[in-house]
Design a protein around this nucleic acid. Structure first.
Lengths: 218, 218
DNA sequence: TACTTACTAGACCATCGATCCGGTCATCCG
DNA sequence: CGGATGACCGGATCGATGGTCTAGTAAGTA
């Protein structure tokens, strides 16, 4: 009885549906409101049932986090228009921008970024990053990849942390202590997140460019 | 009855003692094991008592997180030995390294980095960062400061996330899927955290240096 | 002495993640 | 066709948590 097709499961509730609904719940109400009971209720089932498909709640969170990375487009075919050997810059910047944008589209992800990104979608993007850097002539793609990911993660966490808050209270607080923190009070709370991100990313890319050993392009 | 001294409180339990013990508990057992009951028990009191000094558990966490920043030395007086106007680089790099080291000394902090750093210790360091950058001639110190902080935070989170884990399981997992992720599998899991951090920090600083408008130094 | 304030604790509440136990139902085997 | 198997489901329940209610006690003030 070789390759017997495994018994067709009833599939009324699948892991995919759980993840899908978890993402919706997360998007609508945030990570604090995601409980197994509430998730089960939205799926029209009991909380116990979820545990047949999933071992712990952390599994759901891991799955949901990795699902975000599915939205990140991998800039594979993009060849540069002219710049000599700057292909990798375009690709890496595109990946990092997409990475950041996807996480910002789901702000609850910021709280979950302290867990290892080992899902297939995240791994695929990381693999692409390694390959792009290696092809560009970086002897130590790991260091470069870490620096870039770290920067993206930190930027997302910082932005989500500050954007979600009621700034009036914090602003008043800063004004109140303007004597102690003059420079902070002077520059206020509003911030151009996108341009700052691109700026820092450019610095990182510039610095890396100098330390790479070009391969067979000029 | 001017300047009546406020009634001397009994002070058998103070906020300082609570924060101090919370830090010890956090260091010893991690953020997951910090409960109000356990903390109260260590302090020889009941959990209810803590709520007289503190509004919620989040307050304890905020306080503990800010307490970490107390360990970060502010490199105030450090004048450079010779480099023309590179003072700010030395100071900023010193601050960022100290920032990172303090957080790494308390790995539980990585999980809490998704909350605003508005404690007095954190604010004092941030204020110093703004002042140093402004004095160095940066027209937009906020963008520079954000880029730097983001990078530090991301680096800490990434390192803590990976260092705490049992790498053998992850290593086996990667080996198993080496076909799908060849570049990842090739470079393995071990990593030189310190040098990578300094490298990326150098890139950031280099890039910023180019965009600043020098003030009155050469 | 009467009163206010600082402080403490035990019992209690709602809720959570997770499990136990007892089912149901489609499918496969004989 | 009929029993057995295993995928799937859910109510009740467990232990633990954050937080509150209620009821106090000790120390100072008037």
């Amino acid at each position: 009885m070789w390759s017997r097709p495994q018994r067709a499961p009833r599939q009324t509730l699948t892991l995919d549906r759980i993840v899908e609904e978890a993402l919706a719940l997360l998007d609508e109400e945030g990570v604090g409101r995601l409980t197994m009971r509430r998730l089960a209720e939205r799926l029209g089932t009991g909380s116990t049932t979820l545990y047949w498909h999933v071992k712990t709640k952390d599994d759901v969170l891991d799955l949901a986090l990795d699902a975000i990375f599915q939205e990140v487009r991998v800039p594979r075919g993009e060849t540069d228009a002219g710049g000599p050997g700057d292909d990798w810059r375009v690709r890496v910047r595109g990946l990092m921008r997409g990475w950041r944008a996807a996480l910002l589209r789901h702000p609850w992800s910021a709280t979950l970024l302290d867990r290892p990104l080992l899902g297939p979608n995240a791994l695929e993007r990381t693999e692409f990053l390694y390959q792009t850097l290696t092809a560009a002539g970086f002897g130590a793609p790991k260091a470069a990849a870490y620096s870039l990911s770290n920067y993206v993660m930190g930027s997302v966490i910082m932005q989500v942390t500050w954007e979600g808050r009621d700034e009036t209270g914090t602003g008043a607080f800063l004004d109140e202590h303007a004597g102690r923190y003059p420079a902070l009070a002077e520059h206020g709370l509003d911030h151009e997140w996108d341009t700052t991100f691109d700026e820092g990313l450019g610095y990182l890319l510039d610095g890396m460019a100098r330390s790479r050993v070009p391969r067979n392009d000029a």
